[in-house]
Simulated assay, not measured.
Amino acid sequence: MEERLKEVIGNEIGAALLARVPDVLILREVLGYHADDVAEMLDSTVDSVNSALERARTALQRHLPPGEHEPPPVPDSPAAQELAEKFVRAYQSGDIDGLVALLTADVRVSMPPIPYEYHGRDVVGRFYASIIGQGRTYDFVPTRANGQLAFGAYLRGLDGIRHATGVIVLTLTGDGISAITRFDNSVLGCFGLPRTLP
């Protein structure tokens, strides 16, 4: 089993890190810990944690049944930009149907450190209807997170000031969004984003 795992993930990871790959996957992907925290927990480096996570993701992707997921569009490609624009337009206008149309059937929404997740178009659609379908107005500031499309999300207040609600990261698969992860305001500084916009 270990030899097969080495073959799938890559021999250069080394035996010590190889044993940690399931831990890295669980801590980063399931529990939503930041790479710095995982590195500290595993007495490793951030680069090693990110490398293990990327290799594990690649290995898992390779072993999905054919047609299960298409590769994501190239970052900054017209396809990726078009998907981002459609997401922002649907979110800002409260167009739940338009938003749901952009999602893959197995879409996952998470909001670390909150331990709850929403899975599937119907559930995610109902969740977003409760958030953005209430006459609230959002603005987005584009950024990137681990090479993925991301946005600083700001809610317009009655005082005319836009208050940050966190950072939204999109995971793209083919021509759809397979995951949406919203991080709270504590990460804004990591992206150089302010807490309010005039």
Rank of each mutant, 00 (worst) to 15 (best):
F140G: 03
H163E: 07
H163D: 03
I132D: 04
T165K: 11
R182Q: 15
I131F: 03
R136L: 12
G160N: 01
A153H: 05
I161V: 15
L170V: 08
A150Y: 05
V169H: 03
A129P: 03
G176N: 07
I132R: 00
R182Y: 06
R144W: 01
T165H: 05
I132T: 08
Y128M: 15
I168F: 13
D175H: 13
R162F: 08
L158W: 07
A145G: 10
D139F: 10
G160C: 04
G135K: 05
V124A: 02
G157H: 07
G133P: 02
Y154Q: 07
L158F: 08
V169W: 03
I132N: 05
G133D: 05
G147Y: 15
R182P: 09
G166N: 11
D122N: 06
T181L: 08
R162L: 09
T165M: 09
A164K: 04
R126A: 15
P142M: 00
G147N: 14
T143H: 12
A179H: 05
R182I: 07
D122C: 03
V169C: 09
P142W: 00
G152H: 00
D175I: 09
A164L: 04
V167F: 01
V123P: 01
I132F: 07
Q134C: 08
V141G: 03
D122S: 12
R144S: 09
D122A: 14
A164N: 02
I161H: 12
G133K: 05
I168Q: 14
G176H: 13
T137S: 11
Y138T: 05
Y154L: 09
L170Y: 04
Q134M: 11
F127T: 02
F127H: 03
T137L: 13
G174L: 08
R136K: 11
T173D: 14
D139R: 14
R136H: 08
L172R: 01
L149C: 13
G152R: 00
Y128H: 12
L170A: 08
G176R: 14
G174T: 00
H163K: 10
N146K: 12
Q148L: 15
I131H: 02
L155P: 11
S178T: 10
V124E: 06
L172I: 05
V169R: 10
S130I: 01
H163W: 05
N146G: 02
A153F: 00
F151G: 08
R121A: 12
V124C: 05
I131C: 01
I180H: 04
D139N: 13
Y154D: 05
L149R: 09
A129D: 13
T143D: 10
L172C: 01
R182K: 14
R156G: 11
G133W: 06
